[in-house]
Simulated scan of single mutants.
Amino acid sequence: MTPDYMTRAEILAQGQTRRSIQAAVRSGGLIHVRRDRYLPEGSEDIFVRALRVGGRLTCLSLLALFGVFVLENRRLHVHINPRDGRLRSPSNRKERLDPGSRSGPVIHWTQPLEHPGLSCAVGILDALVHAVCCQTPRAAVATLDSALHLGLITHLQLREVFAALPARFRVLETLVDGRAESGPESLVRLMARVLGCDIRLQVSFDGIGRVDLLLDGWLVVECDSKEFHASWQQQVRDRERDLALAALGYSTLRLTAAKIMYRPDEVLAALRGLVLSRRPV
């Protein structure tokens, strides 16, 4: 998925000449990203930009390409080895990078856990280490949940991630749960934990199917995304499930992914109101 860059020496070793390299760059067969760094034609722009800066793609920028949940991903994230320098603008290899720009790339100056050779991206463990440092605690847990759920890392590798992080982050390890099937589901689980709920994930009901969360043994919480719940047919099926659950004595709260991610205070207030309504005063 992540392309390998080539150096001039490697291209010459393949039988090319200085002139043929120049011709390939002019025709678009090769992309001259920065000094002594070339990428093949068709390489994704996000890798070109990261390599042009002088490092490798990492953190939220890379994880999003793998389908890992990230709450916000607005800037290019680039890993730079501490000994490296000569950083350039992601859009112009001849222009020096302005490190103070708020719209420029986020630079991660760390020693890598993994050494991916000539790859344009760091390894998945390094990307996760950077992502934990770059996000709020709840967003970081949701990202780690997602990586586990997708099978991109094992529980043993999760320990490696936390071993590489500053000690203040290690409390988050106990909160990670790879059973969560979406980032919004992870975020709601963390809210329910704050409320002291008894939490069960991915609970199956005979003849009805699985639900995202079951809180305190009676409140079903479903985290709906536009991707899977936009059609009227799906909405009808959702309501039929809710009716069937109600017949068994369960209440259902349906939340949109957008509301969970961008209006969390409202979601927390709704959860608190429902949960406390059943608890003894």
Rank of each mutant, 00 (worst) to 15 (best):
G28E: 03
G29L: 10
V33S: 02
R35Q: 14
R37V: 15
P40T: 08
P40M: 11
E41V: 10
E41I: 10
S43I: 10
S43M: 11
I46G: 07
F47Y: 15
A50T: 12
A50Q: 08
G55N: 13
R56D: 13
L60I: 11
L60E: 14
L62W: 11
L63P: 07
G67Q: 04
G67M: 04
G67V: 09
V68G: 11
F69H: 14
L71M: 11
E72F: 06
L76P: 05
V78Q: 03
I80P: 02
N81V: 06
P82I: 09
R83G: 00
R86S: 06
R86H: 03
R86T: 01
L87K: 00
L87Q: 02
R88I: 01
S91A: 03
R96G: 03
P99I: 06
S101H: 01
R102K: 15
R102L: 13
G104P: 00
H108R: 01
H108T: 02
W109C: 11
P112D: 14
P112Y: 15
L113K: 15
G117T: 07
G117I: 03
S119A: 10
S119D: 02
C120E: 04
V122R: 13
L125I: 14
D126S: 04
D126R: 06
V129S: 13
V129F: 15
T136A: 13
T136H: 08
R138L: 07
V141T: 13
A142P: 04
T143I: 00
L144H: 09
L144D: 10
D145Y: 04
S146L: 11
